[in-house]
């Protein structure tokens, strides 16, 4: 049975045949995930589809490596912060140990999922070219950067959901990480609000409120699903903007993260 020849012929007529065939089999496979019977019956086809689901789709590899870049950044940031003497007060240590643990786990997961396609860890400059020069000696700066990184992470993952719609299992993993970043962000924001004495800053994002203004562009959006929600349920603009977090494109995120990355 020369299935490849058949696919080749298909492709001459329909350039995206392979893509759609992979998509179809992946969807079928994902419906059956957990069925040990199936995995025992067709191990090679299974392995091939898993491999494709995880690393062969160019779009997915792209998104996963982008995610990995951000997770490397966060992981190294918290490793340095948690290791710095006299930075994080004992009362807050449990919070940052937990956040750091998750970022390490995210890196490990992504490196494993990408296999040989995983990018190498960049070299970072957490002082952001001098803007956060005391990031590992001044707790206020550390928490400011933490809240900014977490909120950026939330926006970054959200911005990639659509690109993963054809890769349902990877989409689900991305969503499962996305909500963790949001949990981190909420707690980091509340700490930052207290340290900075900013009572307008809450665990959720009111308008464009945040410790580093540059990363909250567009968070004050009032239009959802093509409809301006002003006045919905007689709620304030503040409540309406808090109720929806906004995505960022990869370009916008990389512009924000750029100064953190030396090479």
């Amino acid at each position: 049975m020369d299935i490849f020849k058949i696919i080749d012929q298909f492709q001459q007529i329909d350039g995206d045949a392979v893509g759609r065939l992979e998509y179809a089999s992946r969807r079928h496979f994902m419906n059956k995930i957990g069925s040990k019977l199936a995995s025992a019956a067709i191990p090679t086809a299974f392995a091939a589809i898993v491999n494709k689901a995880f690393a062969q789709s160019a779009a997915a590899v792209d998104v996963l490596n982008y995610a990995l870049t951000l997770e490397y950044l966060e992981d190294e940031f918290y490793k340095a912060g948690n290791a710095a003497a006299n930075l994080i007060p004992a009362s807050d240590k449990a919070i940052f140990m937990q956040i750091g643990k998750h970022e390490t786990q995210h890196v490990a997961f992504l490196v494993k999922a990408l296999g040989s396609k995983a990018i190498a860890k960049p070299t970072f400059d957490f002082q952001y070219g001098g803007a956060f020069g005391d990031v590992f000696t001044n707790y206020k700066t550390f928490v400011t950067v933490s809240s900014a990184l977490e909120d950026t992470g939330v926006r970054a993952y959200k911005g990639q959901a659509g690109a993963l719609i054809a890769d349902p299992q990877i989409l689900e993993y991305a969503l499962q990480v996305h909500s963790i970043e949001a949990r981190h962000a909420a707690v980091a924001r509340r700490l930052a609000a207290t340290l900075l004495g900013n009572t307008a800053m809450k665990g959720w994002i009111t308008g464009k409120e945040g410790a580093v203004a540059a990363i909250y562009a567009g968070e004050d959006n009032m239009t959802q699903g093509g409809v301006n929600l002003k006045g919905l349920a007689s709620k304030s603009d503040a409540a309406i903007t808090e109720a929806f977090d906004e995505p960022l494109t990869k370009e916008a995120v990389l512009a924000i993260a750029g100064p953190f990355i030396k090479k």
Binding site: D92, M97, K158, H178, S179, A182, W204, D245
Partner: peptide, 26 residues
């Protein structure tokens, strides 16, 4: 996606109210 992260923020804050400054928020 815009809504789920807000729910996650709620979950973290509620968990922090129950057990402040612990690892419980996540």
């Amino acid at each position: 996606g815009k809504i789920v992260s807000v729910e996650a923020r709620h979950a973290a804050v509620i968990r922090d109210l129950i057990n402040p400054k612990s690892a419980d928020f996540a």
